[in-house]
Design a binder for these strands. Structure first.
Lengths: 214, 214
DNA sequence: TAGATTGTTAATCGATTAACAATC
DNA sequence: TAGATTGTTAATCGATTAACAATC
């Protein structure tokens, strides 16, 4: 059954709602109104209500929203209640840092393996995980039901590797390579183009310096 | 003099134009029309022309755009022709990885220092740069005219540290801490919320699985 | 000159905000 | 019940796309 399309603008805001609701929950706060959330998060109450209502009515008129319930519902919408097996492809600086730094397990991800094509790295332990050669990827992905690949390899090989990952059965790619991947539209890609982000920051800094506005 | 406001939607697209134009330039291609660029980049020719015209006429009617000229102009708009002194605050996994992985120098950034409050890290060399104690930050920022801080510390201390950085004279923060900073509006903040990005990917994977559409 | 393609205005589309009736 | 606040429709705003006159 095909439900109505939710815009990516709304999806992008869900993790932030999730984060704030988690904080309220941890503070022991039980209920929150869209107006209160609006004050804390600096977005309009109207947008909050519109966003939540994309997924059905989570609130009660005259009362507001139950923090814990809303938190859990948004978690479900984001799919955090499901387990997702994940591998990191590219065990260089960034791949290693993500392996150590991201708390994958905390959000329902299962970090299954770390791959590289540099023989010097084979066997090295990172976060209790041995670096494996890329050749093992096809078998490993099928065998372990991997659905997410974190792509942290140089852009020269990223497009080709992404296409292979798709063949092996991956469902989504978290792409840190500074290039646009070429994969079928049923494969989900989330790009993290760090240098683009930094350029945007520089633009805004320079622009502010030039005319004191933004 | 205050020029007309350019929307962040447009700014966000500039680095991608810049990247594609750089590739065309490297291939030795001299001219490109909005339609050709549209085919390569999968955005409408109309949007391309609208975007460029926010900054004045870069093209020639009947001819198109000179690749090299356009590339350089967009670089200037993004402020890549100016030098920006930068420090990394937080020398953990992510801070170290960014120091090694980002080619700061390539885009006009000058990587000046790396700071942490963990004494075990003091003096360690990362990318020819010694990790310094956070206490040195106030003096260092003023002395070295630092305008960008890369914030790679845990979220618990990020808000307070950001406020300090502002006092010391920073102009922009590239924020990797998973929290919203509280700084004056003249300070530019670019957030990289990695776990938000990963959650969005999961949402899209699950949604596709559920109803075969996106 | 004729053809091509920009620059720019107008039309459309989508997202955000405002308003208010429904209802807890 | 009266007051509060949602859910939802309507109005507004902004961004994207289409169209075409200007012009190289």
């Amino acid at each position: 059954m095909e439900s109505k399309e939710i815009s990516q603008a709304v999806i992008s805001r869900l993790p932030r709602y999730f984060r704030y609701l988690g904080e309220l929950k941890d503070e022991g706060i039980e209920r929150v109104s869209s107006q209160e959330l609006s004050d804390i998060m600096k977005v309009t109450a109207s947008q909050i209500r519109q966003d939540f209502n994309n997924f059905g009515g989570f609130g009660q008129q005259g009362y507001g929203y139950k923090v814990e319930y809303l938190y859990e519902e948004i978690g479900k919408i984001l799919g955090l209640d499901k387990k997702h097996n994940l591998v990191i492809v590219g065990a260089g600086n960034l791949g290693q840092a993500l392996a150590n730094y991201m708390n994958f397990e905390r959000r329902g991800f299962i970090f299954k393996g770390l791959f590289d094509n540099n023989p010097e790295l084979f066997g090295r332990k990172i976060k209790d995980m041995t670096v494996r050669p890329m050749e093992e990827l096809p078998f490993f992905i099928r065998e372990n039901n991997i659905d997410i690949a974190v792509l942290t390899i140089p852009k020269t090989s990223a497009v080709a590797v992404a296409e292979e990952l798709v063949i092996y059965g991956i469902k989504g790619i978290w792409n840190f390579a500074h290039v646009d991947l070429n994969v079928p539209k049923e494969i989900q890609v989330e790009n993290v183009h760090l240098s683009d982000s930094l350029m945007k920051l520089v633009y805004n800094i320079n622009r502010y310096e030039q005319d004191g506005s933004i």
